[in-house]
Design a protein around this nucleic acid. Structure first.
Length: 945
RNA sequence: AGGACCGUAGCUCAGUUGGUUAGAGCGCCACGUUGACAUCGUGGAGGUCACCAGUUCAAAUCUGGUCGGUCCUACCA
């Protein structure tokens, strides 16, 4: 069986994946004596599809897992998906919308049926993508946040936290999304700078003779004003403090209060206070015990009858002034402004830019709104979570993200966990007819715990929990918690969490808090969820833009793996847009970036690209050129293997331990391989996937392929070679390749498996799969400094001759006579040791040594250390070309000599720098001076011709 | 407003505790197809390491400042 001439990824990927999966290789080894190693996948939205960020994330996790698995750890990489409350519910509601239905038409139960159906239908997309990415996840342990077990864990966590007083229910101002009709957390609100106006209104005082001017960006909320605040030291308004304002339109009497929160220099120094519709005003209302007047309904339309509440809970109603009830916020704004203008109370309107809060899902303006919600007392949970990072029990990589974590955690706000949705974990709380609330794992437990008679009607809370509440339990709920399962004992705390910095607050911080509070080891000690958080950058497009569906610049990792033609890509990017008018711009951009569509690069090339982009930066501009480069790298490996197999299959490679003679080149490549193994493992341990990938690339391409394979030809094609020599070179070819494949496997699982299956037997290795083989570990015994020195010398000499060839335009195939001269004994030894390699690799006609005093013919010259390499010019070399080359060389050396001489002439340097550094500089100077003298001499001789 | 991060070749990026002639890939120029690979080979060009000052014998690297960019947090109604 021969190998294809070029690497064809699509032929081999899927078949290896199903082989691994069917054989159960992804499951933990189940050998308790081995150290455990566990990664939990960050669960993607079950109804979504993976984007480049996920692809990146998966490449990193799989590299880690395969690396540790090969090192003999008992590894578990557990996959799963998230129910993504709002996002999923929105998708299904949109589907219903297409049928002119709302979820209320269906009712809760029927609606949830629809969502489950949609989940079943679309859920396969993600698992298919994860498989195509080659991720070695244990599918037998796949989890979904709404699974029964996980739902039990959610209930358990809620009830326990409630019993401990860490979850409470309260009426508070929340971020209300008037479109989705739900509360959302602070983190789900985007503050964007937008252009708006600042309205200045005159508010008359109760006495009628005086007035003050307030400045506001939200005129419509004046219907709910319950005070005007000024700074206590503001001289302009001292006389008004304590007096009442007659609020226009409503006629309500409201006090002028003094509060140092007010900035006298901003606006007019008078702030209207609307405690029920602004977070700052709410706080001020609390301080001054002001009434809260809620003027909006859940759509943020003006109520016909306002709710008047107090912080001490008295409740009343106030009729809405005529003409405003039912108006939407912006309409109400217009009406209020018009009315005030007509009454002569509008002083001016200034343009003003302000941060407008918008829901990250709905895009509508968020309304601070008074509602009953459930909260987690976060500051209590945050304390141990901060300590765990401070003490180093949990480490962030790169470390700088710890600052981000600390700054958020040290100023943490209570977490609003209830959502007015249907899709999610229903809150385990029941109400009786009097509105008393009871929390328990189920209704029976509630009745029993509170001794409620059977005839008391209980109604469960309608709301569900924030999706992040269940994801916060992810590391342990998926291992069976609250039961103390063997898996929990083996794999928790998990080892690494791999994630983007954008969800440190959403997810990472909350997992740490929940795990430390809820999970205890067998000694009762609180458990962290993971030991290391590896934070990677965000994948952006080639222009540095964040990838998003609405911008139309998203890429599906599978389209890079399988390729996609331009038309299909255009269709993918422009259908189902929230703003259809964007389609044209998106199409234009796409045509520009991918005029030919995208080629099929294969999974390995994509994964290697991700790894090589995984440096410490925050943004990762995705460059298709890199993928192409690494696809070529795959092809390079493929063809190297082809060469090795052509020369070893069916031949004696010393598998049986027969005697071998290793050549210098054999010893050299084995030695360099050790250094590479050391480097790759060191970088993987440090999470520097880019540097690990680079070391691998450099070794395979620039050492093994460029040099070793070429050097091996001189042995394999040598008719005088002994059986031991042939065997030695074949064995080295095969063994080094086999080891390199294992070294590369975590990065490029498919191509390495495909080749390994053919190469392993030749290297005397047995095993079902490369993924179960030991990861290479460097051995000091195989290091061979003398061989490295000689081959490095050889490379330099060959490069020198190639340089003459290249610059002198001598055809590569033309055999050259070479004259050598050197005062260094080692040069003679090296030539003797590598003569035949030198002859072949440099395409030499002959090698002649010159004695010190022998006159050399005019020739082009290169220096390698003390070795003078001469190619006689006769008939080959153009005088002026050689002069140009020498001039260039001399110029370079002159600069070098000048620089070094100046440095050494500085007494400060000679005195203060360490002797070793000074000596090194002296040595460099001597060499440069010698080389310069030689080049100038050459130049003189040639000029004289 | 506060904080973080970034600014290195035309492009995308490495450069670990100060001591290299500042590197890689892609791109560019020239040459090259007798069996591993044109998804290739050989040679070459290309950088005041954003700018200014300081510390030091020595700065891409450390300190301060300026300019430019990105992001986070808190916001002035």
């Amino acid at each position: 069986m021969t190998m294809e001439k070029t690497y064809q990824p699509q032929h081999l990927e899927s078949q290896w994946y199903s082989f691994w999966e069917q054989k159960g290789f992804f499951k933990p080894a189940n050998q308790p004596d081995r150290p455990g190693y566990c990664i939990m996948i960050p669960p993607p939205n079950v109804t979504g599809s993976l984007h480049m960020g996920h692809g990146f994330n998966n490449a990193i996790m799989d590299a880690l897992i395969r690396y540790r698995r090969m090192q003999g750890h008992n590894t578990l990489w557990q996959p799963g998906t998230d129910h993504a409350g709002i996002a999923t519910q929105m998708v299904v509601e949109r589907q219903l919308g297409a049928e002119n239905l709302t979820r209320h038409d269906l009712g809760r139960e029927a609606f949830l049926d629809r969502v489950w159906k949609w989940k079943e239908q679309s859920g396969g997309t993600i698992t298919r993508q994860i498989r195509r990415l080659g991720s070695s996840v244990d599918w037998s342990r796949e989890r979904f946040t709404m699974d029964e077990g996980l739902s039990e864990a959610v209930k358990e966590a809620f009830v326990r936290l409630h019993e401990e007083g860490l979850i409470y229910r309260g009426k508070r101002l929340v971020n209300w999304d008037p479109k989705l009709h739900t509360a959302i957390s602070d983190l789900e609100v985007l503050q964007e700078e937008e252009k708006g106006s600042m309205w200045h209104f005159r508010y008359p005082m109760e006495n009628g003779s005086d007035s003050l001017i307030v400045a506001t960006t939200r005129p419509e909320t004046m219907l709910g004003d319950t005070a005007v605040a000024v700074h206590p030291d503001d001289e302009r308004y001292q006389h008004l403090i304590g007096q009442n304002v007659r609020l226009p339109i409503t006629g309500r009497l409201i006090p002028v209060i003094a509060d140092s929160y007010v900035d006298p220099a901003f606006g007019t120094g008078c702030v209207k206070i609307t405690p029920a519709h602004d977070f700052n005003d709410y706080e001020m209302g609390k301080r001054h015990n002001l009434p809260l007047i809620n003027i909006f309904d859940r759509d943020a339309h003006v109520l016909a009858s306002f709710d008047v509440l107090g912080f001490d809970a008295e409740q009343a109603r106030e009729a809405c002034p005529d003409g405003y009830a039912g108006l939407e916020r912006m309409a109400a704004r217009k009406a209020v402004v018009a009315r005030l203008e007509s009454e002569g109370l509008l002083v001016k309107i200034d343009p003003h830019s302000l941060k407008v809060p918008r829901g990250d899902r709905s895009g509508v303006i968020i309304e601070p709104w008074l509602t009953d919600q459930w909260y987690v007392k976060a500051n209590v949970l945050a304390k141990p979570a901060i300590e765990a990072v401070e003490k180093g029990e949990i480490q962030f990589v790169p470390k700088q993200y710890e600052n981000m974590y600390f700054s958020w955690m040290r100023d943490i706000q209570d977490w609003c966990i209830s959502r007015q949705l249907w899709w999610g974990h229903r809150i385990p709380a029941w109400y009786d007819a009097n509105g008393h609330v009871y929390v328990g794992r189920d209704e029976a437990e509630v009745r029993q715990k509170h001794s409620l008679a059977a005839d008391v009607t209980l109604r469960q809370d309608d709301d569900v929990l924030d999706t992040w509440f269940s994801s916060a339990l992810w590391t342990f709920s998926t291992l069976g918690w609250p039961a103390q399962t063997p898996e929990l004992k083996m794999f928790h705390p998990t080892d690494v969490l791999v994630t983007g910095f954008d969800i440190i607050f959403f997810w990472v911080a909350r997992m740490i808090m929940m795990s430390l509070h809820l999970v205890k080891d067998e000694h009762g000690k609180s458990q962290i969820p993971f030991k290391t958080v590896y934070v990677h950058g965000l994948v952006r497009d080639s222009e540095g833009q964040k990838m998003s569906k609405s911008k139309g610049n998203v890429l599906d990792p599978l389209d890079i793996i399988d390729g996609i033609d331009l038309e299909s890509l255009l269709a993918k990017r422009t259908t189902g847009l929230m703003q259809p008018k964007m389609a044209e711009a998106i199409a234009k951009q796409t045509r520009k970036e991918f005029p030919e569509g995208i080629a099929n690069y294969g999974t390995d090339a994509l994964r290697f690209t991700f790894c090589s982009l995984a440096s410490t930066g925050r943004d990762i501009k995705f460059d298709m050129g890199r993928v192409e480069g690494y696809r070529n790298f795959c092809n390079k490996i493929w063809n190297a293997a082809r060469y090795v197999l052509m020369n070893t299959e069916g031949q004696d490679c010393g598998q049986g331990g027969e005697a071998v003679t290793l050549s210098l080149a054999d010893r050299w490549i084995i030695s360099v391989l050790q250094a590479t193994e050391r480097e790759v493992t060191r970088q993987l341990d440090a999470f520097r996937f880019d540097l690990a990938a680079q070391a691998l690339y450099e070794f395979i391409w620039n050492q093994y392929c460029d040099w070793y394979l070429e050097l091996s030809k001189s042995v394999l094609n040598d008719t005088d070679a002994t059986a031991e020599q042939l065997r030695g070179t074949r064995r080295t070819l095969v063994r080094v390749l086999e080891t390199s494949l294992r070294l590369a496997h975590p990065f490029m699982p498919f191509i390495t498996e495909e080749i390994w299956q053919r190469v392993a037997p030749l290297a005397g290795k047995q095993g079902e799969s490369i993924m179960l083989q030991p990861y290479p570990a460097a051995s000091g015994e195989r290091e061979d400094a003398p061989a490295e020195q000689t081959i490095e010398w050889l490379k330099a000499v060959i490069l020198g001759i190639r340089n003459i060839r290249g610059e002198m335009d001598i055809p590569p195939g033309k055999p050259l006579p070479v004259l050598l001269r050197s005062s260094d004994e080692a040069d003679r030894d090296n030539v003797a040791a590598t003569r035949s390699l030198l002859m072949k690799m440099a395409r030499l006609e002959n090698i002649t040594w010159l004695t010190d005093d022998e006159e050399a013919p005019p020739s082009a010259t290169q220096l390698v250390g003390k070795l003078e390499i001469r190619v006689p010019m006769a008939g080959l070399i153009d005088k002026s070309a050689e002069l140009a080359r020498l001039s260039k060389e001399a110029e370079k050396l002159e600069k070098e000599v000048e620089r070094l001489a100046a440095k050494l002439a500085n007494p400060q340097f000679a005195d203060k720098a360490p002797e070793a550094v000074v000596e090194k500089e002296r040595q460099k100077l001597r060499e440069a001076e010698g080389a310069l003298a030689h080049v100038l001499e050459q130049k003189g001789k040639i000029e004289a011709l």
